[in-house]
Each structure stands twice: as C-alpha cells, then as structure tokens.
Nucleic acid binder design. Structure first.
Lengths: 214, 214
DNA sequence: GTCTATAAATAGATAGAC
DNA sequence: GTCTATCTATTTATAGAC
C-alpha cells in the first residue's frame, strides 16, 4: 500500500477499490472472495496483495474513504453562517445526496452495524461520531436559540437519519417483494425524500406542542 | 428436518436453533461456521445435518420463525376495535417490545436487507410485507377517518420503524464509540423510545399544519 | 439419534519468475 | 508492477459405525 504509487498504478489501485466496493456491498466481507475481486477488476490476485496488505485492509480503506467524504460535507454545512433550521434543512439535503451518490455503500454500512463495529478502528469510529456530532450539534444550537425544542439527542438524530438509510437500503428487498406481489411498497425520488425528512424534522422539533401531550 | 421429531430430540433441535441464532447474529451467514454452532450448542456437527438439510435451511428456519412471531402480534393489534391513533400507539409499543425481546435478530435482519433479500423466499417476503401492510393500513385508516393526514405510505412507515431498528441495532457500535470517547451517543430505555416514536407519529401525522409549509 | 472420520471444494495468502 | 503456480488452512457436507 504505497502512499504515492507510480502513475501507471493509480488506475489499477482505484479499479481494485471500485470493484471491491461493489463486491463487499453485494456479498459482505466474508462472502466476498479476493479471487472474484481480481477477476472482475481484471487484475491478478497477487496484484491486490501488492497494493493492499490483506483483504481486511482493502475493506478498511473503502470504509474510511466513504466516511471521510460524508463527514467533511456535513461539517462544511454546520460551519456556515446560517440559522439552525436552515442548516438542518441543508444537512438533510446533503445526507440524501450523499447516500444517493454512493448507494453501494449502504449495505457495507448496515453490515458494519450488524457486526457491532468490530472492524472499525478509532479513526473510523471518530468519523461516524462526527456525523452524529454535526447533526445533533445543529439541533442543540436550535434548542439554545429557541427555534427547536429540547429532545433526546440520539433519538432526534436517528429520527432523521434512520428512515433515509433504511428506505434506501431496503430498495432491493422492496423490488423483490414487488415480484412476489401481495402489496407494493412504493419508492420515492430524492426530492420527495428530502421534503419528507425536512417536514419530519420541522414537526418533531417544533417548540409549540400542538396536541395533547405536555 | 422432521416435522415432528421425537420428544427427546426437541431439546437438541431447539438448542441448535438458539445457538445458531446467536452465531448468525454475531457473524452473519457466511461468517458463521457449522463447526462452531455444533461446539457451542454441545452437539455433534452431524446432528445439525440430521435436523436440518443444510446450513442455509437452518438459517431460513430462524428467519421465518421470527418474522412470523412479529407479524402475528402486529396483526392482532390492527384487528382490535380501536381508533387508528390508539392502534398506532399500541403498534409502536409492540414493535419496541418485540425488538427488545429479540435484539439478537436485528443484526440478522440488517444483513438480510444488505443482501437484498436474496435468501428470502416468497413466504418470508410475505411476512415482511405483512408488517408494512399492518402499519400503513392503520395509518390509511386514520387518514380516511380524518385523524391523520395523507402521507407517502412507505416514508411514513419507515419514519416510525427505521429509527427504532437503527437505534437498537447500533447499540454495540455506540458502546464501542464510548470506549474511544470523543463524544457519547446516549442510549434510551424502552419507555423513552416508545414515547419518542409515539410523539413522532403524532406530530408527523397531525392533520393541521403548524408552521410554514402548505 | 448420535457419533468418528473424511471427502471435496474453496479460501486467503505467498514465492518467485519476468 | 504484473504474472503463474502453489501452500496451508478451513469449510460444508457425507459415509458409515453404533
């Protein structure tokens, strides 16, 4: 894993990374074979072990790169001089766009959660924490300024992020259900998802209580 | 896989099922070895192949049993003579209780989603669809009677169910984050989660628009 | 129903030529 | 940097005794 490989190797390395992403997403870490990555990336298996010390290191590189990209985008928004409710709207837009641009990463993320994060090092855990810190930080900002009410920070975070992740992640299962056809679970485009999540955030964080609860 | 094994075999069979559940939850289908299930269940490996035709069939049995249990509980509530908003509150209570009683099933479910449901047959897909149909059916009931507004059925469903699944499923990762400690992502007990989700459902489905949107 | 022993296939990883 | 060939370990699954 040279920090700066020769120019003609870049294509090979990134082709390995791209193919491995697809394979890990489709089959999981254990279900993915290095043989298959090599065949599909049209490189020799030994080339993979030239660029990466192990199958696990290849996997970790993919996870870290993706977490870094998303975390940086979100933190850039949180740093902007905007009121908290506008920031949250923009965070939601960016989250939806990030997921839709890298849908292949969702299965990897879900399996990582299922594995209890045992393959995540301090660096990757810090990046995940950064996403939570950014979203819940903007909500806390709004709570302080009075535009949002006070709410359990983790539940607030998951109320916004989890529906997005699960709705997008379940698209293949929903497509399979459609073939068995007892009832269709409809899909939704990006704009619809963004508008829905922004509406949810607004209603859930709205300070004035509309109904019966105290 | 005898439909009705002899009495003294029941203990063995259910011990295999219980141990296999834990193993599949902890390591995924590919990551779980039949050897390890046998060792931990204190049965011989050949016994597993006596009771189940294959590793895959053992896995499918576990998935189907759990889906059946949850689906039946939810449908019993939907059939009760209650107003839709009360039904939804009870569905949420039951969902939280079902998840908390069978936390080991969450990783299995997440990985199944990540796999695109390729291991799910028509029967299992129908059971999943049943959960969606029950929740969104109660919401549609409320929409017709005017206590709920009209909303994208799948997004409504995932807005309620996804935060629960993700919040509970991420507990181990959040515990790991705590050890690295840059920021703590707090947990919540069952009552808090139930109250939160009921509040979310109420606010999101509330017909009168409180804020700026149309 | 339960065991021992083993077949048969496949995996991750490496040696070494070019 | 890239390849061929192979080592070593592990896996699912089965045969056959008791």
């Amino acid at each position: 894993m040279p920090a700066r490989p020769a120019a003609h190797a870049m294509g090979t390395r990134s082709r390995i990374l791209a193919t491995a992403s697809e394979e890990f997403a489709a089959s999981g870490f254990e279900g993915t074979t290095v043989d298959r990555i090599a065949r599909r990336a049209k490189v020799n298996k030994a080339m993979i072990y030239y660029h990466f010390p192990s199958k696990r290191a290849l996997y970790t590189t993919i996870v870290r790169d993706r977490f870094t990209a998303i975390t940086e985008k979100l933190q850039a928004i949180a740093a902007q001089p905007l009121p908290p409710d506008r920031k949250l709207d923009r965070l939601i837009e960016t989250l939806v766009r990030s997921i839709d641009e890298a849908m292949h990463f969702l299965p990897i993320f879900l399996r990582e959660i299922a594995d209890g994060g045992v393959h995540l090092g301090a660096e990757e855990l810090a990046l995940i924490t950064g996403v939570f810190a950014t979203v819940s930080g903007v909500i806390a900002e709004g709570t302080r300024s009075g535009v949002f009410r006070s709410i359990h920070p983790a539940l607030a975070h998951f109320t916004i992020v989890a529906p997005l992740l699960m709705f997008r992640a379940t698209a293949p299962v929903r497509a399979r259900i459609k073939t068995v056809r007892r009832l269709e679970i409809p899909d939704a485009d990006s704009a619809t998802v963004v508008a829905h999540l922004q509406m949810v955030a607004r209603r859930v964080l709205m300070p004035t209580e509309p109904g019966r609860e105290g």
